[in-house]
Every structure is written in structure tokens, then in C-alpha cells.
Amino acid sequence: MHKLETLRRRYGAFLSLCGTAAGVLIFAVMLLVVANVAMRYLFNRPVTGTLELTESALPLIIFMSLALTQMHGGHIKVVLLTRRLPERLARAANVLAMLAGFVLFAWAAHAGWMMAAKSFAIGELERGSIRFPIWPVKFAVCFGLALLAVQYLLDAVWAALGGKFGDGSGEVME
């Protein structure tokens, strides 16, 4: 239990790092969009590649944050019924819920890996006013899905051992 707690904390610190990177990225996208408009109106020279960079940034932003959101209990659920259950049953339901998340996202990560590998094999490019390889973004999506699967697995073990979840940012619904 103690070891698991340490593991969860370290893993959480890593997820926070990923989240911070995603946050920096959304801020950069904001600046890019503003720069593009400014350059268009002031100099009739829009920033080349605004669309391509913006659309490739979004998957990175989302998938670097999914697991962190789960760690903070930010994904919506309904505990209307489960909070009325006796302790043991409630714990079982919680383990089941976390395992369900693990199964889905492990499956999705596996599927995402195959797509990313295929994209890498054909050297897939983002093609527009600028060009760059798109497969790194696909691998990042897969990585984010895997991070989320691991978080669900940690949470499942945690719940099975009787660990409690804080109500995080207050978005867990009761």
C-alpha cells in the first residue's frame, strides 16, 4: 500500500509535467492565431502554416492531459447509486469502474499504436503550406492513451486495496 502510494505520487508528478507541456502548447497556439491575424491585417502576410500547426497541436494538447484529468478525478461520473451502497459493494463497483477504463484505453492504445506504426512506415506527412511528418503526433496520441490506461490500472489496484480518492478539483459528481 505504501509502495503503491509512492508510485501513484511519482506517476502523478510525471503526468503534471505532461499537462504543463500541454498548457504551454495551448498558450503558444493562442499566440500563433493572434500573430496570424495581426500579420494579415498589418502586412498582408499571414503566418505560413498557422492551420497545419494549430491542427497538429490539438491532439498533443488533449492526449497529454487525459491521464492527468483522470488523476484529479476530472472525468465525469455519476455516483448517485454507488454512494448509497454498503462499503464493500461500493468498493467493488469502484474497482470495476477503474478496470473498465483500463480495458477501454489499453485497447485504444494498442489500436493507436498500430495506426502510428503504419503512419511511420509510409512516412506520412502533414501537407499544406508547410510540411512536416505527422506520425510523431500519432505516436503521442497512443502514448497519451497508454498513460490513461496505466492511471486507470493504478486506480483499480488502489481502490481494491481500500484506498480512497480525493474529490480533486470538485468535478466528481455526487
Binding site: 499537462g19 498548457g23 504551454v24 492531459s65 484529468t69
Partner: peptide
Amino acid sequence: LLETIQTSAMIFGI
């Protein structure tokens, strides 16, 4: 920024 990306992740996940 962290609040923004987590709310975004919640919306997109769903």
C-alpha cells in the same frame, strides 16, 4: 493553463 487543458480533456474524452 492546467485548468484549461483538463477541462478540454474532459470535453474531448466524452
